[in-house]
Design a protein around this nucleic acid. Structure first.
Length: 875
DNA sequence: ACCGCCGGGTGCC
DNA sequence: ACCGCCGGGTGCC
């Protein structure tokens, strides 16, 4: 039952090809310290001078930031010293600056400062500097300092700061002994995820468990966890508490992490992270919750809305706080901003619209504007006059910076990021765009706040405008590094931070001793399929050909350069496991393996690149951009045949100019060489849906049909999902479904919003004659997609990423499911599919044993990935 | 004395 | 800065 590997993000695909440790992947901006491998080289005492020229003040033991100032007219080596607030305190003394400049500019080390004493000096003050970097740069840093007559002192003894000392992480660990200087053991991704959930296990009965009662008449209609959420959200928006890690001390407000103090009271976050992992529970309610504050309704309207009891209750609780019990507050405040902005992935946009339109819009006269599509209004006042503005992350990112985006000119009453983990990458355009929105009440809705590592949290924390973490350096120094290095107290800090701003309930959470959600069982069966002699022959010949090509790449050491091609080989094999028609032109299918720009006309090159891109996009490889690690938005392909989001790769080129290099292979990049994907039709490599092609079945289709017919005989009312990554395969399956008289519907990524909604409603209907089968493309829809009518799932082909499969299964195994869910995975014997399963299982095992395992080194990981490629094609 | 020494002026980068 | 450093004033004991 319990899945514990869902943190495998879609970046897994790249990992599976061993690309993530290739130089510069994940280091695109070059500005971020590689926390995973940074070690402390040593410390150095220096002085800050020129104090009297600047206003920035510091306290003893306060952290300071060292910032290069290459354009300083007096000294190109100048290094500024800023306090936590960003105010300049002074400069590093010039001799020292001369030594630091080179180190900082070449990013050999990150230099951090603390003022140990003398903070109130008038002219100069001491600064204790720490040098952090990768082991391989240590010598260069030491040399550089030596050249200028400086010598690093060994790291100050960390004293009580033993690693793994935190109760949270070690739990059962005994006392810890002397700690090595190196970051020996780091938290693995798996540990982080499970540790994240542990944060909430021993949560005391505090404010989060206090429920808010609605009016007497309806209070009982709310489920306990709904009341709890309601109370928490209201208190978050109205609380006057100090943000975490701030204390009031006489006339100052003191940050206990950085020792920064200021007179101005730091504002608390009017919002937080709703990290409920309960599928529908929140989906059902969040639309409601977020429009409530702005509604202008008379209470009596609501009596009809049993279904929206949480809304009812919420409104009543607002009424109680206003002067008149009879009239509901008209506006949140008369002169303040009016509109709530909701940003969500495209896949759940229809969900929100649907809910608003069906249940709220018509009855409550709420102005809702869907800011999407090319005809979206550029007029900020149009947006600011709405009650709700809905948009997507892609629109947010596209708009940002391109023109004077109205989204960024409106001051919002409230900003809600749905599936907020979408902004986990700080360098992604959508993250920057989201961080630049204006509005005080800020909410993040996400089931997975941590997808890969603590790193993922920064964007969310920064979005919430939690001082001082909006600046990455302070987040990094006070939370991220202590946590990843296992410094005592680090995890405890993260814990109190997260707890103070997050409400999390999982499927297994309990409220008042009762499970918040009880789901029927979920079973996964593997159904092996044997290819016919004929199918096997084709498969074998393609395999041998691909194998030969890939072994050539291995021997030439060009595995990475040919990653699209390797994917292509694997893709074709996976397609052949499903149906021969998915993979057309098998004999000449490798003609594209040798792309060289030389002997091709520009037209040919263009076509080759477009074909390659289509191949990548259709390979089921999660269509992910190596820059932002997100699904590709506006995919473009480089001349070296790597695919990125257009905004992402433009940003890379802009920041690395004039000699930008491909983040994946370090080949030169030029804007004019980028080729965009003609996105007019659904991308499917197999372009095999040729209507004139005669329909034939395949072993896998036979296996499916056998199972479907048996199911229909045994339980005629059971509905099922037939899932594939290949939409062409789904089209092929339509034939036998028709032949055997199945009523079916279909949902895939290429369908228009309206069609999708129709398909879903039709399938979910319990009417006689409604479809019993839905053909579903693996990644259609998002977490919000609700297909609880189905109790059976047939997964036609395995995905790279087990998490993608799980997300798909969760579309029917969620609140509202009345039956046990049975999932059947069709796997072809002795094929790439079986090998994929083995790799998936290994990942699961690894994840399950998370606590004991040590994070493998980069080279180990790389070797693993190379082995995976070999294993996939039996090399 | 093309020095030493004195004491005033002065002060980030 | 209760410092260092600079440069002008000065000059045996």
């Amino acid at each position: 039952g319990e899945r514990n590997y869902s943190w495998f993000s879609s970046s897994d695909f790249y990992s599976s090809l061993g690309l993530e440790d290739f130089p510069s992947v994940g280091d695109i901006s070059g500005t971020e310290e590689d926390t995973e491998s940074a070690i402390l080289y040593g410390t150095l005492r220096g002085s800050v001078v020129g104090l009297r020229y600047y206003t920035g003040i510091v306290n003893n033991n306060e952290m300071v930031a060292l910032q290069r100032e290459p354009n300083n007219p007096y000294d190109k080596n100048a290094v500024r010293v800023n306090n936590v607030n960003g105010d300049q305190v002074g400069h590093i003394k010039k001799e020292l600056a001369a030594a630091l400049a080179g180190i900082m500019d070449s990013k050999l080390a990150v230099v951090e400062g603390v003022v140990p004493y003398g903070a109130k000096n008038v002219f100069t003050m001491p600064v204790q500097m720490s040098f952090w970097g990768r082991e391989e740069n240590r010598e260069a840093v030491v040399d550089q300092l030596k050249k200028h007559g400086f010598k690093l002192a060994p790291p100050l003894k960390v004293g009580s700061e033993s690693r793994f000392g935190s109760k949270w992480i070690s739990g059962r660990a005994g006392p810890s002994y002397s700690a090595p200087v190196h970051a020996a053991v780091q938290l693995t991704t798996e540990q982080l995820k499970s540790e994240f959930d542990k944060l909430f296990e021993d949560l005391k009965e505090d404010d989060k468990t206090c429920e808010m009662e609605g009016a007497e008449t309806v209070g009982t209609l709310l489920l306990p966890h709904q009341k709890q959420a309601l109370a928490w959200m209201v208190s978050r928006e109205n609380s006057n508490d100090l943000p975490p890690f701030w204390e009031e001390r006489s006339n100052f407000y003191y940050n206990i992490l950085t020792n920064f103090a200021e007179e101005k009271r730091p504002e608390n976050v009017r919002g937080g992270i709703l990290a409920d992992d309960m599928g529908l529970v929140i989906i059902l309610n969040k639309a409601v919750i977020f429009f409530l504050y702005r509604t202008c309704v008379h209470v009596s309207y609501l009596v009809h809305f049993n279904r929206w009891k949480i809304l009812y209750s919420f409104l009543l609780c607002r009424v109680k706080r206003t002067t008149s019990v009879q009239s509901v507050e008209k506006k949140y405040s008369d002169d303040g901003p009016r509109a709530t902005l909701i940003v969500c992935p495209l896949s759940v946009l229809s969900n929100w619209i649907d809910q608003f339109e069906q249940h709220i819009h018509q009855d409550f006269n709420v102005n809702i504007y869907v800011y999407y599509g090319s005809d979206r209004s550029k007029d900020p006042s149009v947006l600011s006059e709405q009650d709700i503005v809905l948009t997507t992350y892609n629109i947010l990112a596209t708009d940002y910076g391109v023109s004077d985006s109205p989204l960024h000119r409106v001051k919002w009453l409230r900003i809600v990021l749905d599936e907020g983990h979408t902004i986990r990458n700080p360098n992604a355009q959508q993250t920057k765009a989201a961080l630049n929105l204006e509005g005080h009440r800020r909410w993040v809705l996400t089931g997975t706040p941590i997808q890969n590592s603590v790193k993922d949290l920064w964007s969310l924390i920064s979005f919430l405008k939690l001082k001082p973490f909006t600046d990455r350096e302070w987040w990094h120094r006070t939370i991220q590094r202590p946590v990843t290095m296992g410094t005592a107290g680090g995890l405890g800090r993260l814990q109190s931070l997260i707890r103070s701003i997050t409400l999390r309930r999982t499927k297994t959470s309990k409220v008042k001793g009762k499970p918040v959600l009880e789901l029927p069982e979920r079973k996964v069966l593997i159904q092996h399929v044997t290819l016919t002699e004929e199918e096997r022959q084709v498969y074998q010949s393609v395999k041998e050909e691909g194998k030969a090509a890939i072994s050539r790449f291995f021997s030439e050491g060009t595995v990475l350069a040919h990653y699209a091609d390797i994917l292509g080989v694997l893709l074709r094999l996976r397609q052949l496991c499903c149906h021969p028609h998915l993979c057309v032109n098998t004999s000449s299918s490798f003609s594209y393996l040798s792309v060289s720009a030389d002997n091709k006309t520009p037209e040919e090159l263009h076509e080759t690149l477009v074909n390659k891109m289509k191949l990548v996009l259709s390979s089921g490889s999660d269509e992910e951009c190596a820059v932002c690690l997100e699904s590709l938005t506006v995919p473009v392909i480089t001349r070296c045949a790597h695919v990125f989001c257009k905004p992402c790769i433009f940003e890379v080129i802009r920041s690395e100019q004039p000699n930008a290099k491909c983040p994946l292979c370090r080949n030169g990049l030029r804007v004019e060489h980028l080729v965009e994907c003609p996105l007019e039709e659904e991308i499917d490599s197999s372009n095999g849906k040729k209507s004139d092609q005669e329909w034939i079945s395949s072993s896998k289709i036979n296996a499916l049909m056998h199972a479907l017919i048996e199911l229909r005989r045994d339980s005629p009312n059971a509905k099922c999902l037939v899932v594939s990554q290949f939409t062409t395969f789904l089209s092929l399956i339509e034939n036998p479904l028709k032949e055997s008289g199945f009523a079916f519907t279909r949902l895939d990524g290429s369908m228009a919003q309206k069609k999708r909604v129709e398909a879903i409603q039709c399938f979910q209907s319990s009417q006689a004659g409604s479809p019993t089968v839905m053909l579903l493309s693996l990644k259609a829809g998002g977490v919000g997609l609700n297909l609880t009518a189905a109790s059976r799932v047939f997964l036609m082909d395995p995905a790279w990423n087990p998490a993608a499969e799980d997300q798909c299964f969760d579309r029917c195994h969620r609140l509202g499911q009345k039956h046990d869910v049975v999932i059947t995975k069709f796997i072809v014997k002795d094929s790439v599919e079986e090998n994929m399963m083995k790799i998936q299982n290994k990942k699961r095992e690894l994840a399950a044993g998370a606590f004991a395992t040590k994070k493998p080194s980069a080279s180990e990981v790389k070797q693993t990935k190379i082995n995976e490629i070999k294993a996939l094609i039996d090399l």
